[in-house]
């Protein structure tokens, strides 16, 4: 004789036809003489019908794009953990990403890119000295991006700085490479797409962290860059030439690289001011 409790625990399996013939017979036999378990069976059947049809899986609340980028996010996190374990400069990381499993084409490209970065650094140094005061004098107005004078750089702003730097290098690489040779190296383009996807994810996380009104311009810049990066991430192997041209056009038309440079100058100015303030307060 089966107890009510044992029978009721097995009603779900009974309704799903998962019980052995022996267990099924035993439960059915119990049911013939037990109204209480009969009611439970009816109640369970109704619950299964109701929830089986209507319950939506939590994963269904995420759209297809989210799931397409999910593996990228996991890979990005694994990569991030390994770089945290072994500290390396952002240029080193990016060069690793570009060089890893690539054809000789990458070597030439990385060399050109390095030259570009050096040139940019020299340019930044050159432009910084005479312009610093000018940028600083506009710090209370809408002239610079995300200004908040005398404020220490927050963690999300530091992250945004890394993101801008990495995106800039990626964009300079694309802008300075002939579209045709860019498209011809499929593996190189695949890598660019992969890096872009990681950066897109980064931009989403950073944007959600830049909530202060004083960070609005920085948030806008991160968002604008994110849109360009999405275009790169979604470049198709067919019609790729047009896609790359659209990306280049978007970067030029929106003055993206100029804005990034401006933001970098602002950050450098802010950092040196903060240092100055710290020194003064120590004295």
């Amino acid at each position: 004789m089966r107890t009510h409790r044992t029978v009721q625990k097995n009603l779900y399996a009974l309704l799903r036809d998962e019980l052995s013939a022996k267990d099924r017979q035993a439960i059915e036999k119990h049911m013939t003489s037990c109204a209480r378990c009969g009611r439970e069976l009816q109640s369970m059947r109704e619950a299964m019908d109701l929830f089986g049809q209507k319950l939506r899986k939590p994963s269904e609340y995420r759209n297809e794009l989210y799931w397409q980028l999910f593996a990228e996010k996991v890979e990005g996190r694994i990569r991030l953990e390994s770089t945290e374990a072994e500290p390396q400069s952002f240029v080193g990381r990016l060069v690793d990403l570009l060089v890893e499993n690539q054809k000789p084409f990458s070597f030439g490209f990385v060399s050109a890119l390095s030259l570009g970065v050096v040139a940019l650094a020299v340019w930044s140094l050159w432009i910084k000295t005479p312009k610093l005061d000018h940028v600083a004098s506009h710090s209370g107005s809408a002239g610079a991006i995300g200004l908040h004078v005398n404020a220490q750089e927050t963690a999300v702003e530091m992250r945004a700085g890394d993101y801008l730097e990495q995106s800039k290098i990626l964009l300079i690489g694309i802008m300075n490479t002939d579209t045709k040779s860019l498209v011809e190296s499929k593996s190189f383009l695949d890598r660019q797409r992969e890096i872009s996807r990681i950066l897109v994810r980064e931009s989403q996380e950073i944007s959600s962290g830049l909530t202060d009104p004083s960070q609005q311009r920085l948030r806008e810049l991160v968002g604008d860059l994110g849109l360009i990066l999405i275009q790169i991430a979604n470049l198709e192997s067919t019609h790729c030439i047009q896609g790359v041209d659209i990306v280049k056009d978007g970067v030029e038309r929106n003055g993206i690289l100029f804005k990034v440079n401006l933001e970098e100058i602002r950050r450098a100015t802010q950092r040196s001011r903060n240092k100055g303030t710290e020194k003064q307060s120590t004295i």
Partner: peptide, 27 residues
Amino acid sequence: VELHMRQVYDLAYGFVDDHDDAEDVAQ
């Protein structure tokens, strides 16, 4: 990852009851 990500997310959500946490746990 692509084969199991949705089910892992669903189970994580079953515990944490929040989409942001479920994402973080799944990753």
